[in-house]
């Protein structure tokens, strides 16, 4: 995030304590930049949905403020809400309505004049066009999910919230949905996505925020987060097995690991460190007359990072 980026949504010290005393959010600060795709990652019950619900007006915050495009979500709710489309986590649809009428209803509800051409485009983009006259109850779960997305897009929002959009959705549909998200991003829509599928965040997000126990632990550019927190490892397949790590490599103790059969040496290093130590390691190996058959490096995935972060906090 650079200083030129325009902040579209800004949450300041947002807390939420439910009536039963459960503290879902403990002072969340989050800025969302115009045009980005940000993924909020977190385990179940971390507060992702609560945060989204507050921004969209479904849940009242206990304290703190949120602004959308400079407007307060409470005082100027008409302005903020008309900018936002929400796809909820649960498949909450009207069973008896037709796809066409439920999507048209959403547009009217958000105060936009009827525009059949736009509705048609949305339905076609989501491969719902041939189902437009079907009652929603006749659709599969994946199709219902598409209907919810179509409803959220019916009023041409500038911001789209996708609350676990691909939970319980098959792989094909998930790929379709990512394509829709890409298209929306190209149209300049800002997208906030919650998920616990890390591969989803990794595949489509620009930035990633990790929420756990009602707090944002980290918000970073995806690449930066992965390099910053990512460990890389270098795997060396040896020509002949070793019985132990050669003495001249004692400086690497801790970072260097010999496999049980002695044929693989693994070296873990920090990519952000000034010196990775790889040259020294290779020189040391040559000195000790250890011959390397093959080498490969491995970058830890977002999943590894996420698990580390959440575990650290626990």
């Amino acid at each position: 995030m650079t200083s030129q980026d325009q902040i579209l949504i800004s949450a300041k010290s947002v807390t939420k304590t439910y009536e039963d005393g459960f503290q879902a959010l403990k002072g969340v600060d989050l800025d969302i930049v115009d045009g980005e795709i940000i993924a909020l990652l977190g385990p179940n019950g971390a507060g992702k949905t609560t945060l989204i619900s507050i921004i969209c007006g479904i849940v009242n915050a206990s304290s703190g403020t949120v602004t959308v495009a400079g407007h307060d979500i409470v005082d100027d709710y008409r302005k903020t809400r008309s900018l936002i489309g929400l796809v909820p986590q649960e498949l909450t649809t009207d069973a008896f309505e037709s796809v066409w009428s439920t999507v048209s209803f959403s547009r009217g509800l958000f105060g936009k004049p009827a525009n059949p051409a736009h509705i048609e485009k949305v339905l076609k983009d989501l491969s719902l066009w041939d189902k437009k006259d079907n009652r929603i109850m006749q659709l599969s779960g994946g199709m219902k999910r598409r209907v919810l997305i179509a409803k959220a897009l019916a009023h041409e929002p500038r911001i789209l919230f996708l609350d676990e959009p691909t939970a319980g959705v098959d792989v094909e549909l998930r790929k379709d949905m990512w394509a829709v998200v890409e298209q929306l991003r190209a149209d300049g829509v800002t997208i906030i996505l919650t998920t616990h599928y890390i591969e989803e965040a990794e595949a489509i997000a620009d930035r990633i925020g990790v929420i756990n126990k009602g707090e944002i632990i980290v918000v970073e550019e995806k690449a930066a987060l992965m390099t910053k927190l990512g460990q890389k490892s270098l795997r060396l397949d040896l020509h002949a097995p070793l019985t132990r790590i050669p003495d001249n490599l004692s400086a690497f103790t801790g970072a260097l690991d010999l496999s049980e059969d002695g044929s693989v040496l693994t070296y873990s290093y920090d990519t952000s460190a000034e010196r990775t130590g790889i040259t020294r390691l290779l020189a040391g190996l040559a000195e000790a007359d250890v011959r390397v058959a093959d080498l490969s490096t491995h970058q830890s995935s977002l999943e590894d990072i996420f698990v580390d972060l959440v575990r650290e906090q626990a």
Partner: peptide, 14 residues
């Protein structure tokens, strides 16, 4: 009951 109220609550309506 069905949860579709979310849409009305999130809409710019008084």
């Amino acid at each position: 009951f069905t949860g579709t109220i979310y849409e009305v609550l999130s809409a710019p309506v008084s």
